[in-house]
Amino acid sequence: MTLLECRNVGMKFGGAAALTAVSISAEAGVITGLIGPNGAGKTTMFNCITGLLEPTSGEVMLDGADITKLAPFRRARLGVARTFQRLELFTSLSVRDNIRVAGEIRSRWSKDKGKSDTQAEAEHIIELLGLSGLADRDVAEIPTGMARRVEMGRALMTRPRILLLDEPASGQDEQETEEFGELLLHVRDEGTAILLVEHDVSLVMKVCSFIQVLDFGCLIASGSPAEIQTNPAVLEAYLGEDHSA
């Protein structure tokens, strides 16, 4: 079932077009990859979906409803959560409190107000993400790879229907990335849609069922990992015109 659908989304900054009529989608219970070279417009797309930017044209639909004009916090309440490529952690709070406060914010707006035990849920997420050893540390002093997991934990605390991850594996080493891949599959299996922006191609190929490729603000390809790996347009975008090697 298609949960998120972006139709012909365009975004212009002054004269420069960051996105030109891009249509992408994401399904519930599926990890969808969104890849492309630097500057392709992936983060801009995320900003348009979460409402930090209002697209200059096109629509963003969530579960059939148009959310293009909604404020970011309203979209979050409908189940859109994200992490940031440039970290946006709450630097005055500890790792535990970063995750906990997300649950506390959620309990202010969610319908099952007061019923859920935020603290226990936060501990569960901390455990799940392998952050137990760091829970009492200041987020400003933990390594980037771990900080990205904190952002993911924070997003998960809102119990999202769709999770947008912006380069979550950068800063994590090989073994951590492997664990992280397992974690993504676990979240997917619980029915959450995941839209994954990531430069670690092996991770993308491993976990994504469907991949969409952006280049210079345009959608240039979409398909299964196998199709994308052999798509000439994708190879050209990544390797340049001469890609016979």
Partner: peptide
Amino acid sequence: RMIVAMKDSPAACATLG
């Protein structure tokens, strides 16, 4: 915790609802 979070990153707070 919420008001401190708001000071640290308004954008992240909004995306948490």
